[in-house]
Design a protein around this nucleic acid. Sequence first.
RNA 1: CGGGGAGUGGCGCAGCUUGGUAGCGCGCAUGGUUUGGGACCAUGAGGCCGCAGGUUCAAGUCCUGUCUCCCCGACCA
Length: 579
Amino acid sequence: MRMSQRFGKTLRESPAEAELPSHSLMLRAALISKVAAGIYNYMPFAWRSVRKIEDIMRREMDRITGQELNMPVVHPAELWQESGRWYGVGPELIRMKDRSGRDMVLAMTHEETVTDLARRYIDSYKQLPMVVYHIQTKFRDEPRSRAGLIRVREFIMKDAYSFHGYEQGLDEYYPLMCEAYLRICRSCGVPVVQVLGDVGMMGGTNAHEFTYLTESGEDTLLSCPECGYAANRETATIEKGYVPLGDGGEVAGAEKVPTPGMNTIALVGAFLGVDPRETIKTMVYVAKDEAVMVVIRGDLDVNEKKLANRLGVAEVRFAEPDELRARGLVQGYMSPVGVSGMKVVADDSLLGTRGYVAGANEQDFHLRHVMPGRDFTADLTADIAAAREGDPCPVCGGSLCVRRGVEIGNTFKLGTRYSQSMGAGFQDEQGNLKPLVMGCYGMGVGRLLACVIEENHDERGIIWPMSVTPYHVHLVSLGTSDRVKGTAEGVYARLQKIGVEVLYDDRDESAGVKFNDADLLGMPIRVTISERSLKQGGAEVKLRREADSCIVGLNDLDDTLCQLIRKEMSRYTPEEVEQ
RNA sequence: CGGGGAGUGGCGCAGCUUGGUAGCGCGCAUGGUUUGGGACCAUGAGGCCGCAGGUUCAAGUCCUGUCUCCCCGACCA
């Protein structure tokens, strides 16, 4: 490729809209160009990288028996009505009508279409397991796009789907996919951590996210530096410990005590001389118009996402003060003791026999010796506690850290969520009709590209990993003499002939312009041919990621470059990644 | 959807307070001199100042509405 003919040119200044390095560099290097909020053109250089990333994904999917196919972007609404998501998913699903008035949707994911395929073509256990994938456009009308390609509305995704006869089959296959995901990211020069994820609206039983850790990420996760435990904030658990009875005796009967003005856990605890762990915190949430009383040990906080999941609703909100008053509840002095007509959800931190301080449902009064199970009963007891910085790790008890990251991929054990609603079954060895057990696995191509740059750049520009670089070599000629130009042209032709991907800066620009563009564009190897280099014996060869350069004789140049490319490439060849 | 900010040649910005010929840098075109870290000189091209109303003799500038974009939050497989 000749720079003089390149479609797209570099910018000296970063466009005002860019905040993240990856966004700014992609705009300055003319890798992407915005069409609308969250909708981008991929320019030729970026597209070359995209294709290489896709090929890495293909390699890894094929390696674990994936079969590539292609499913459409526009789906008939019927499929989504069958799965139920036509009714459950909000405005992020673009709905439209075709010319005959038929309801259609723009694909935001492909569980429906792939399940439709499975029910047509999978009949027997003999065909299982079956794994298909495609790399294709998705559209999600997100409320807010941000940060260039990190979060967009239209994007390319590699999504794979596996079909199994039994849970056990999925359990056996699932780790292979996780390993493939780690290998893909490693091959692209992006370090990721595998974290426990929330199953969210996808349904299913088990999920992981593959997250690139960066402060500018939008995902929050908790990780344990001691043992490596890592989980999304929405699903992270903590070791809550059990608070034994102070005196080891029996729990006395509940006793009302005056606590004037003590309307927070901290105030009550200090006033009565008890640890917050010996108190019950009571809140009222509203889930789908139903008020729910939520209790948790006083030192802990409620994770609203966990609570919503437990209640089977999309979201919960804090009850308004007048909603509390309408039920005769006094803010700051609430508890489930003596309250009827409301569902009570208790965090499992309140399990066990001991007395707590709780509200008396009366202004300026609390109760001592309140015992869950005796003085009130919960309709549902579950883990609804929020994991916070410094909380004990559920695995080893170490101190959890809050980290931010970008979710590049995710894996789900879907189970029979879609096969059941859409009637995708198979016959087992006994001839019984069973629903297919499914897994689904997504990975964002553009997002991964953005993370490649986010991870691999310096203040001068991009530093492409050899595995996904648009071109292997950036050939720069300096000066306009026939000798220099002729030599550079010859090298350009020869390298192309032996299969090296060369970007040749043949422009009549000053050295500064060319070097700065080379640094910004970031090809891993730069080859400079000038009067000076020829005088020194050949061409100057420099790695983008290193400061030093060396002179290589023109006769040795081809071999040297091929070796260098191979060596650089090997840095991104995945070894077996431990599960 | 809530809070904040911004729309002026391709990019970065000034001009708006106090209405009166639309400017600067980069980029682009042509000619010349340059050529190892964003060269220089000269001459040019390119803008319904987001859009629509209104006020005014006169609106980039004042008023109203509207659209779009960015950031934070909510949301998000």
